[in-house]
């Protein structure tokens, strides 16, 4: 039995051909979350597509990714073989935690995937449309409790943006932060809160089975296969994408940077990655180079404004 086990693993380990670059991917979150899944999917695809023979994933959880970010920027300095997975949530976390290390201290390579936010109410709720919800919010902002993820995260920012666009003081929103998607979803399903905000994927199966009513999505245009208006159609000028990206360490030479970018592009264009996106239900929002950096700067500025409006950042 033991021999069988050993031979299975040894043969699997030895069967891997040697490749030029080994990578260590830092997932700045606990196992199971979106960043961890992104990192582990990258690990799988990079090995399958022959981009790298040995890819390790390391979890450095904590504080919306800022702990992983800080560790990455100091310890990874000049190391072309380490990558960091991150995303939009990090932008808000850096601001609310007063993180001394920001995204400017690493080398953002590319945006890989994105997810749009969905606003839902339980099926039993009298609220039928986004307009109904906005009306309730205007009547008494405190009576509308929003259930979503951590304070200062994408979901919280969305609630603030909706209030602002509806002409309600974002400071007045009654946002209830839950730890993790499952707990928030349970509170929404149990009608403990008025409305829920989270990534569309979190709600998808509930919406399809009719236990949740989808009021709107945060994309700029309607999503294929999703029967709901965008926030813009509902009269609120908001478009938010909860994106995930990959960054390289600071202090790389131009060639090293180009090599990493090429590997990441190979990953994003591979059929195996397309397969991962399909099974996980992630949107492909690949954006690299200067275009990505420009978009990043815009997102950071907008996030800072709304967090100040909500009162989370002074």
């Amino acid at each position: 039995m033991k021999h069988f086990l050993m031979t299975t693993f040894l043969s699997a380990a030895l069967a891997l051909p040697a490749f030029a670059a080994d990578y260590t991917i830092i997932a700045p979150a606990n196992p199971g979350g979106g960043w961890d899944q992104t990192a582990r999917s990258m690990q799988q695809v990079m090995q399958q597509a022959g981009i790298s023979g040995n890819v390790q994933v390391q979890n450095v959880p904590g504080a919306g990714g800022t702990i992983g970010l800080a560790q990455f920027s100091s310890q990874g300095q000049g190391n072309p073989n380490t990558l960091l997975v991150g995303g939009y949530v990090m932008v808000g976390a850096i601001l609310t935690n007063h993180s001394p290390v920001t995204l400017r201290d690493v080398e953002p390579i590319a945006r890989l995937t994105g997810e749009y936010e969905a606003i839902v109410v339980p099926a039993s709720s009298p609220i039928q449309t986004m307009a109904d919800l906005v009306a309730e919010l205007k009547k008494n902002p405190g009576a509308v409790s929003w259930g979503g993820g951590s304070a200062g995260g994408t979901d919280h920012i969305m609630a603030g943006l909706i209030a602002k666009a509806a002409g309600v003081d974002p400071k007045a929103i009654n946002y209830i932060a839950f730890s993790g998607g499952g707990e928030a979803l349970a509170a929404i399903l149990g009608a403990q809160v008025t409305a829920g905000i989270s990534g569309y994927g979190e709600f998808e199966s509930q919406i399809k089975s009719g236990t949740l009513r989808l009021l709107a999505v945060s994309s700029a245009e309607r999503l294929p296969g999703v029967d709901a208006p965008t926030l813009k159609e509902a009269g609120l000028d908001i478009a938010v994408q909860n994106w995930r990206m990959v960054a390289a360490a600071p202090g790389l030479s131009a060639e090293q940077k180009a090599a990493v970018s090429a590997d990441v592009e190979k990953l994003a264009k591979s059929p195996q990655w397309a397969e991962v996106l399909k099974t996980k239900g992630w949107q492909d929002t690949y954006l690299a180079g200067e275009a990505f950096k420009e978009q990043l700067d815009k997102d950071i500025a907008a996030t800072e404004t709304i967090l100040k409006d909500i009162g989370l950042v002074q």
């Binding site: 606990n30 196992p31 199971g32 979350g33 993790g180 998607g181 499952g182 979803l185 349970a186 399903l189």
Partner: peptide, 21 residues
């Protein structure tokens, strides 16, 4: 809750969800 609602209530369940996919 994972099988009946698709609710991953623990980190373990969230990874299992990824596993099921």
């Amino acid at each position: 809750p994972l099988l009946t609602l698709g609710l991953p209530t623990t980190a373990t369940a969230a990874i299992m969800l990824a596993g099921f996919q």
